[in-house]
Design a protein around this nucleic acid. Sequence first.
DNA 1: TGCGATTTGTCCGTATGTATT
DNA 2: TAATACATACGGACAAATCGC
Lengths: 224, 224
Amino acid sequence: MSSLASLKPLEDTTIRGRTVDQLRRLVVTGELAAGMRLTETELACALGISRGPLREAIRELVDIGLLVSKPYKGLFVREITRKDLEEIYSLRTMLEKFAFQEAWDKRTPEALEDLNSRNERLITTIGTGSDPFGPIEAELHLHSWCYELSGHSLLLQSWNRLKPNLQFYFAMHQQAHARQGPERKSHDLYIRLASGTDLEAMLDHLNDHMRQGLETTIGFINTA
Amino acid sequence: MSSLASLKPLEDTTIRGRTVDQLRRLVVTGELAAGMRLTETELACALGISRGPLREAIRELVDIGLLVSKPYKGLFVREITRKDLEEIYSLRTMLEKFAFQEAWDKRTPEALEDLNSRNERLITTIGTGSDPFGPIEAELHLHSWCYELSGHSLLLQSWNRLKPNLQFYFAMHQQAHARQGPERKSHDLYIRLASGTDLEAMLDHLNDHMRQGLETTIGFINTA
DNA sequence: TGCGATTTGTCCGTATGTATT
DNA sequence: TAATACATACGGACAAATCGC
């Protein structure tokens, strides 16, 4: 089942684990502004933990790429350049095409139903404007479908590392321009092709889908 | 220049950084046997450092996948299954094909000269049987060429995360079967196509090259 | 150039939580 | 159930490096 990989780790038992989640959320929602310097003692105090587990959590976030650590100089929230964004998108396009190739023959009726429910969740989430980050998360959850279904744990791991960077940029961009997330029907063709019988058409569409996403987002960063 | 990305970080100034390198080497050379349990206090004592920076270094290696951490239970050297190996190879094939697409138009005469020198280093390293892990490192250094030349930092980062896993398995397998590393002329066609004008032929060869590598290595694990 | 302030990096002692016996 | 071993976490301290004056 694809639901196996999507099971949330039932509340981390370690402070380190919870801190990783907490910090990741703070970064991807922009509560910690990009480029901002972080001091360990302040952070530890603010989070109510000691420096030990905090430093371990920092290592994980540095590895993901959300934080940048310069020895003896400081810790900073990552800044995303246009080149970074292009790299994220080109790598993501490749990963997702590969995921669909691997997952194609594993599409059971249950899996397709799962895909549809993720799309419906995205649509309803766009409707309710309560949580501004809901649509972002819902869209990424929709795209996670093919990675989970592929059964390729290393591929899923790569996607899970890439995902926070996308979340980060989406939120940054959204906050800066007060623009809502994805369009309501933006994934209709994606879903139809993913449920269909023409793998090549799906792969072609992924190129378009990703390029379109890149161009619309880059359009905003261009001014800077 | 591709040499920029290949510059070794000139001796890490932090204990954490040195410990990451040290532990990685211990794991990929098999000095720490696969599946073996590690206790922090022992490790810290053996390495002559305290638990603080050690635990931070451990986080990085867990992220790479060389170590496995089970909260409150222990820390273990990763064991590689056949499925893991297949995943590593299939992902690697895709990454390297993508790298060649990105690097294709950036192949300057200097870059091609660099490629040749890496191949020659591989050949001479195979000749001298002094360091059994030399050929492994030389082969991976040869394959790093396209990633560095691509200028795609995120792609290079993905490769650098994958590389230790390959090193790990190669050494494990080599140690178990007392077999030398790559054949002397195994990369002749690879070099020729990489220096040529037919990108499609290169990509096709990558499929073969990788599949062959996977099959020969899997042939040994089959018995287990 | 040197000096002091700040912060990271590191170490140690200790206490607590968890799993295993 | 109790006891042991170890991972986890805390707090204080010092060393080392960086930056500003």
